[in-house]
C-alpha cells in the first residue's frame, strides 16, 4: 500500500469523461485487436498463397462450434448483467450472474477440449498441415484468453469482491472493465467461428 493519491480511479475525469481503468482497459483491448490482427493476417497470407484450402465444414464440427458460439454469447449477456446488478446495488445478483458467466466460460473450454481430443484421436495435429496449424493456433490462443478471463472473473467473484464493502464505485468500475475484456473475447470468436468453420 505504498501508492500516492491518484485521482480518477472511481470518478470520471472531467474532460475525457472516463476513469483511468476504463481508458487503460480500452488501450489493452486495442493491443489485443492488433494481436489477433497479426494472426488473422497470417491466415489471409497463408490462405491466399495456396491453391488448395479445405472447407472448414469438411474438417471441423460445425454444430458443436455453433453451440459453443451460443454459449459464449450467453456468457456475454450474463457478464453484462453481473455489472448491471452492481449498478442496481445487488451483490447477490452480481454473484449469481458472475458465477453463471464463469460456468459458461468453462463450458466453452470443455467443448473445445472435446473438439481437440477428437482431432488428436484421429491423429490430426497442428503439424498435420497448414489448415490444422491455423485452426489449433488461433482457437488455442483464443482459448487461453478465455481461460485468463475465467481466472480474472473467479478473482472478482471471491477475494476481489471484498472491495464492494469499502469502495462500491471502484468495484463496479472493475467489473465493467472485466466485462469489456470478456466481451472482446466473445467478439474475437464471432469472427473466428465463420472464418475457420464456415469458409
Amino acid at each position: 500500500m505504498s501508492t500516492a493519491v491518484i485521482p480518477y480511479i472511481s470518478e470520471s475525469h472531467p474532460v475525457t469523461g472516463v476513469t483511468n481503468s476504463k481508458l487503460g482497459t480500452w488501450c489493452f483491448l486495442a493491443s489485443e485487436v492488433m494481436l489477433f490482427g497479426g494472426l488473422f493476417s497470417a491466415y489471409v497470407l497463408l490462405r491466399t498463397g495456396t491453391l488448395e484450402w479445405p472447407h472448414g465444414k469438411e474438417l471441423l464440427n460445425v454444430p458443436l462450434a455453433t453451440v459453443n458460439t451460443l454459449v459464449l454469447i450467453t456468457s456475454s449477456v450474463t457478464m453484462v448483467m453481473s455489472w448491471a446488478s452492481l449498478v442496481m446495488k445487488s451483490l447477490s445478483r452480481y454473484r449469481f450472474f458472475m458465477g453463471l458467466t464463469i460456468l459458461l466460460g468453462l463450458a466453452f473450454l470443455v467443448v473445445k477440449a472435446f473438439e481437440y481430443g477428437h482431432k488428436f484421436q484421429h491423429h490430426l495435429f497442428p503439424s498435420t498441415g497448414t489448415f490444422y496449424a491455423v485452426y489449433f493456433t488461433l482457437t488455442g490462443l483464443h482459448g487461453l484468453h478465455v481461460l485468463g478471463g475465467i481466472l480474472v472473473n473467479l478473482y472478482f467473484l471471491v477475494p476481489g469482491s471484498r472491495l464492494w464493502r469499502t469502495n462500491p464505485e471502484q468495484f463496479t468500475g472493475r467489473i465493467e472493465c472485466a466485462g469489456l475484456y470478456w466481451h472482446f473475447v466473445d467478439l474475437v470468436w464471432i469472427f473466428l467461428f465463420p472464418v475457420l468453420y464456415l469458409l
Binding site: 469523461g17 453484462v80 472482446f184
Partner: peptide, 14 residues
C-alpha cells in the same frame, strides 16, 4: 456486442 454490451454506443470521443 461492442455497441450494447461494451457500451461503445454511449462512450466518449477519446
Amino acid at each position: 456486442v461492442a455497441g450494447f454490451f461494451m457500451h461503445l454506443a454511449f462512450e466518449r470521443v477519446i
